[in-house]
C-alpha cells in the first residue's frame, strides 16, 4: 500500500503521454529515426521492428537521453525537443536501456536507492520505494547481494526495479525480457499489466509472442518510420496463410513489414 497524492488523481491536461510528430533522431551520423509519428496513451505498448529499425534510438530519444534532430516530441504535455528544462519530465520517467552498466560493488538495494536519489525522490520515501520496487521484480532474497554476483536475468530485473522505483508516468523498457527464463517472463508480463493500468509503458522487443501476450497496443517500426499501430488482434488480421511465421501474429508482422518494404522500394 502507498498513499496516493492529490497530483496523481488530478485529471491530465494533455491528450497523449507520448506525442511525437515527424520525429528525427540521429544515431551517430545516421538518421535512425526519420519522420516518425507516434501517439501513446496509458496502457502497455509493444514496440516491434527488425534489427536496425531504430527502436533503441527511439527509446533513447523518448528517455530524453538523446537530442532530437528534428520534429516535435512532447512527453506528458511538455515539449522536450528544445533546450527547455527537462527536470519535471525526467522525474516522471522510468527507463531501462538495452545494455545498461551498473556499479559492480553496489548491492541491489544501494543501486535502486541511488537511482531513486538521482530521480530526485523525497529522501524519506526512498528506502520504502526501493524495497517495494525490489519486491515487485522478485529480487527480495537478493536485495543485499552485490550487483557483480548476480546472474544476467537478475541484473535485468534489478534494472527493471530501478526503472519503476519512482512510479513513473512513462516507463520505457528496451529489451527487458532478454535473459529471463520462461517463468520470470510470465511474472514480468503480470507486472507490466499492473503498471500499465495507470501509466504509459513502452516495451521494445523482437519477440512477437511477448507483445501479443502482454501488450494492449502494438507499434511496428521499420527504417525509422511508423509502419503500423493497433491492437494485437489487428496485427494478426494482417497476416494471411501464405505469410512466413509460426503464429497469426508473426504472419501479420512479416506481412506488414513486406508491404512496407515493397511500398518504400
Amino acid at each position: 500500500m502507498r498513499t496516493i497524492s492529490a497530483a496523481e488523481t488530478a485529471p491530465a491536461t494533455y491528450a497523449w503521454a507520448v506525442h511525437a510528430e515527424q520525429l528525427k533522431v540521429r544515431a551517430g551520423r545516421h538518421l535512425a529515426v526519420d519522420g516518425l509519428d507516434l501517439r501513446l496513451r496509458t496502457g502497455v505498448h509493444g514496440l516491434l521492428g527488425p534489427n536496425g529499425a531504430g527502436k533503441t534510438t527511439l527509446m533513447r530519444a523518448l528517455a530524453t537521453v538523446l537530442k532530437t534532430a528534428g520534429g516535435e516530441l512532447t512527453l506528458l504535455g511538455e515539449p522536450v525537443s528544445g533546450r527547455g528544462d527537462l527536470r519535471r519530465v525526467r522525474r516522471e520517467l522510468g527507463y531501462l536501456p538495452q545494455d545498461f552498466g551498473f556499479y559492480p560493488r553496489f548491492t541491489v538495494r544501494e543501486f535502486v536507492e541511488y537511482m531513486a536519489w538521482l530521480k530526485e525522490m523525497p529522501k524519506a520515501s526512498i528506502p520504502a520505494a526501493a524495497q517495494r520496487a525490489v519486491e515487485r521484480v522478485g529480487l527480495t532474497a537478493k536485495a543485499d547481494a552485490k550487483m557483480k554476483t548476480l546472474s544476467g536475468g537478475m541484473v535485468r530485473r534489478a534494472g527493471i526495479a530501478q526503472a519503476i522505483v519512482n512510479d513513473p508516468q512513462v516507463l520505457l523498457l528496451d529489451e527487458p525480457t532478454v535473459g529471463l527464463d520462461p517463468e520470470q517472463r510470465l511474472d514480468f508480463r503480470e507486472l507490466l499489466a499492473d503498471i500499465g493500468v495507470d501509466s504509459c509503458v513502452l516495451v521494445s522487443t523482437h519477440l512477437v509472442e511477448d507483445v501479443v501476450a502482454a501488450c494492449t497496443d502494438v507499434v511496428l517500426v521499420n527504417e525509422g518510420k511508423l509502419v503500423f499501430q493497433g491492437s494485437p488482434e489487428a496485427l494478426m488480421a494482417h497476416g494471411e496463410q501464405g505469410d512466413p511465421g509460426f503464429s497469426p501474429a508473426e504472419r501479420g508482422y512479416s506481412a506488414l513489414l513486406r508491404r512496407h518494404r515493397g511500398g518504400a522500394a
Binding site: 537521453v65 525526467r90 536501456p97 552498466g101 530526485e120
Partner: peptide, 14 residues
C-alpha cells in the same frame, strides 16, 4: 568511466 552513464543521463539530476 561511468558504467551507468545511460541510466544517469536520463535522470533529473543529470
Amino acid at each position: 568511466t561511468d558504467p551507468a552513464w545511460e541510466l544517469v543521463a536520463g535522470t533529473p539530476s543529470a
